[in-house]
């Protein structure tokens, strides 16, 4: 079994929102349903200014706080370490949204259920897409996806090379690593 994760190199993120709209198209999401959100930080004083854009989405935490609070088991750890939401079992109580340390779960305004990034590459293997939509769509190749448990995978090598780390220490055991 694989343990899938993602690496996001924020030194390459231009904040163009392509991953957001590509994800909406390819996954058939609503116009107001975004699985990826962005935080932009500006530092320094004019004219020596640095800007960083950080895309955030479900981190597929090994210890998924959302799954721990879900009363129906809708939010659960699925195969290959991918946190899933069984839409039919979601009762829309929103506990998981409160529990998520990264605020990356969104309520579907039509169904009332909660949804979030699905690491779509796994379903994409069957539909012929090469890679997660956001990884494939990124204009600058800021994203890498792969098996964290395989030391020879591109993502494992990149994490080792760059010292990529979770976005914030101590919140959970996430599977998205950031180069900053």
């Amino acid at each position: 079994m694989a343990r899938y994760g993602m690496l996001i190199d924020t030194t390459k993120c231009i904040g163009c929102f392509t991953c957001r709209t590509a994800c909406q198209r390819q996954n058939g999401l609503l116009d107001d349903e975004a699985f990826i959100r962005f935080e932009t930080r500006e530092s320094g004083k004019y004219p020596n200014v640095h800007v960083e854009t950080v895309p955030l989405q479900c981190m597929h935490c090994d210890d998924a706080p959302c799954a721990q609070v879900c009363p129906t088991g809708a939010a659960h750890m699925g195969e290959d370490g991918i946190v899933q939401v069984d839409q039919d079992r979601c009762i829309g109580c929103l506990y998981c949204m409160a529990a998520c340390p990264y605020q990356v779960r969104v309520r579907n305004s039509k169904t009332g259920s909660v949804d979030k990034c699905r690491f779509c590459t796994v379903s994409a293997y069957t539909s012929g897409t090469k890679m997660c939509t956001c990884v494939e769509a990124c204009l600058t190749g800021a994203r890498t996806f792969g098996d964290l448990d395989d030391p020879d995978s591109e993502i494992s090598k990149k994490i080792a090379e760059t010292g990529a780390a979770p976005i914030a220490p101590g919140l959970s055991k996430p599977k998205i690593y950031y180069v900053r």
Binding site: T18, A22, R25, L139
Partner: peptide
Amino acid sequence: LIKQLGDEGHPYSRGKLCARGYGYA
């Protein structure tokens, strides 16, 4: 329209579309 993929052979897209390409559709 369920999916859009940039065409590799087009000199402007080179396999990619931007945020507008997906959203404006």
